[in-house]
């Protein structure tokens, strides 16, 4: 059973619909016991960083997610959920994240001709071989975000070019983050969710 962390953030239901469509057993829950018992934990998220952290704190879920991470349960953060996995974010002041992947969340610089938020389909470059997610190479996925992760190259699985290099998939052992929305990225996105399921089944995080 996969647990989708329910903390009143936007559009978690579309993610649930994608998992249902793929036949991946899942529950939408904020119950610490169910999250702790889950085979894998998915942390969705839309909105502002600190509001999301506060929503997790109110439900006493920060330590729960950190604990399952430590117990090597695979965790998949999506969009803002991926950003929460990092140390901190500069969105509306400096705010602390979950600290599961070393790195910082920064604003996408507004360069000539580039609109912020980055909203639309961008093409991924694989940055790490032998990953469960290598099918993403050269494929387009759907992004909606104004901030991006700055992290060491060893955590980078794939990235897109948006004036700067923006990490699209990151991984630190059992902790995975996807900046784009796999649940909105057509068959490529669905395949990535299936690959995550495969990774969970094999319990193999050896990509880095």
């Amino acid at each position: 059973m996969f647990a989708i962390v329910d903390y009143d953030t936007g559009n978690t239901r579309n993610l649930k619909k994608a998992l249902d469509y793929l036949g991946i057993e899942n529950i939408l829950t904020s119950d610490p016991e169910k999250i702790t018992a889950a085979q894998a934990v998915i942390l969705p998220g839309v909105g502002a960083f600190e509001a999301a952290m506060e929503a997790l704190r109110q439900r006493n879920l920060v330590s729960v997610v950190q604990k399952v991470a430590k117990d090597k349960t695979p965790i998949l953060g999506i969009c803002l959920g991926m950003q929460l996995l990092f140390d901190d974010s500069e969105e509306y002041g400096l705010h602390q994240g979950l600290g599961l992947i070393p790195g910082h969340i920064k604003a996408i610089p507004k360069q000539a001709g580039l609109k912020v938020p980055q909203m639309g389909w961008n093409q991924n470059q694989l940055r790490q071989k032998d990953s469960f997610f290598e099918s993403i190479d050269q494929q387009f996925t759907y992004f909606v975000h104004s901030y991006y992760a700055e992290c060491e190259e060893r955590f980078l699985v794939a990235s897109v070019d948006y004036g700067i290099e923006i990490p699209s998939i990151v991984q630190n052992d059992n902790i995975i983050g996807m900046q784009f929305h796999p649940e909105k990225s057509g068959r490529v996105g669905l395949e990535l969710l299936k690959n995550f399921q495969k990774m969970v089944k094999t319990n193999d995080f050896t990509c880095n």
Binding site: Y21, K184, S185, R187
Partner: peptide, 8 residues
């Protein structure tokens, strides 16, 4: 639609 179609 959103149960069957996974695009914006």
């Amino acid at each position: 639609v959103s149960q069957q179609v996974f695009m914006p």
